[in-house]
């Protein structure tokens, strides 16, 4: 509010010396952002309209886009990405909200817990992703040892291309239960949730702290129980934070790459394996950029991904405009 008031304050007319200085001050940032953030937007479109292996070959119009949209590999990668987004974002937010809510009560050792939950986020996904790949190693990893020790069937985890529902159906003898994300992808999801929960919880904690305590007092006087207070005070007032985190988590999930790369490569030796069941759109992009340098196609994939993220963000914004409650 202070900022808004200051922005409204009448501005004195600019003086010439200050105008020149202003441009000099923003010059270094402008050059770097211009070359590496602004220009590439247009350049990417230009590349996507050409047949472009390591060097530019010729203008092909929308041919690359046609290739992307008719490629079964692309649609498979989109399916994998959607599984990944749907399987990580809600669970991650629910778990972190639960932890943050408990931490926000008067618990002993709050700082210690919060510090521990945050640990995964500060580590690099390459190092911790590799650790996870070895933890889920079917032969020597501790996860399978643990499962075996409590009498459950050890799994092949990152090497398992079959869908999670197929595996459940087989285990429980339910024939119609089939498909779903591969167990390999689920293993990656477990990593992602582990990685992000502490970060989300930290932001939820800040959001919880911003809710005025008087509201809870008033509700208690009116006889509201814990759940009613949570449902009618905490959730609505936390909705901007929930919206922000779900947007960040969703965009992050669409762009996920590093941990998928290292986990699949460390486990099976192929990025996006087994049987392409962990090949998200970003991995598909990487295959067409780094593995086989078909830059025109890769740029088209990146652009389609950008459009998809944009549509989802707008959709989420639209939902938020109906459901998010702002205090001011």
């Amino acid at each position: 509010m202070v900022q808004a008031a200051m922005a409204k304050k009448r501005r004195p007319p600019w003086r010439r010396g200050e105008a020149v200085m202003g441009f000099i001050y923003i010059l270094p940032a402008t050059i770097i952002l211009g070359v590496f953030h602004f220009w590439p937007m247009f350049y990417a479109v230009y590349i996507s309209l050409h047949r472009w292996r390591v060097v530019r070959q010729g203008f092909v119009g929308l041919e690359n886009y046609e290739w992307v949209l008719t490629s079964p590999k692309f649609w498979n990668s989109l399916k994998v990405t959607v599984y990944y987004v749907v399987g990580t974002v809600p669970i991650q937010l629910a778990l972190s909200l639960l932890l943050a809510y408990i931490l926000f009560q008067k618990v002993r050792g709050r700082e210690v817990f919060r510090t521990i939950y945050f640990l995964p986020y500060v580590t690099s996904t390459i190092a911790s992703g590799a650790v996870f790949a070895w933890m889920f190693n079917p032969n020597t990893g501790p996860i399978n040892q643990f499962l075996a020790s409590i009498g459950l069937t050890p799994q092949r985890w990152l090497l398992e291309p079959r869908g999670i529902f197929t595996l459940m159906g087989e285990a429980w003898g339910i024939p119609w239960l089939q498909g779903g994300p591969s167990l390999a992808l689920v293993t990656i999801m477990i990593f992602v949730i582990w990685f992000w929960v502490g970060y989300d919880a930290t932001i939820f904690l800040a959001g919880l702290g911003a809710i005025p305590y008087e509201l809870y007092e008033a509700a208690q006087i009116d006889g509201a129980n814990r759940w009613q207070q949570f449902r009618h005070i905490t959730l609505p007032l936390l909705s901007p934070t929930i919206f922000f985190l779900s947007l960040v988590a969703m965009i992050g999930a669409f762009k996920a790459f590093n941990h998928i790369f290292i986990m699949t490569e460390a486990a099976a030796g192929t990025v996006g394996g087994p049987l392409n069941t962990t090949t998200t759109v970003t991995v598909f992009f990487f295959q067409n950029f780094y593995d086989t340098p078909t830059y025109g196609k890769a740029a088209a994939i990146a652009f389609v991904l950008f459009i998809i993220i944009l549509i989802f963000s707008l959709l989420q914004n639209w939902v938020a405009s109906k459901r998010v409650f702002y205090m001011e």
Partner: peptide
Amino acid sequence: IFFLFLATLMVPGELTVLPNFLT
């Protein structure tokens, strides 16, 4: 100019990786 700066936040890294590599 500030608005143009902010507009670049919309662009995902995946889109800029390839052109930046060529640059």
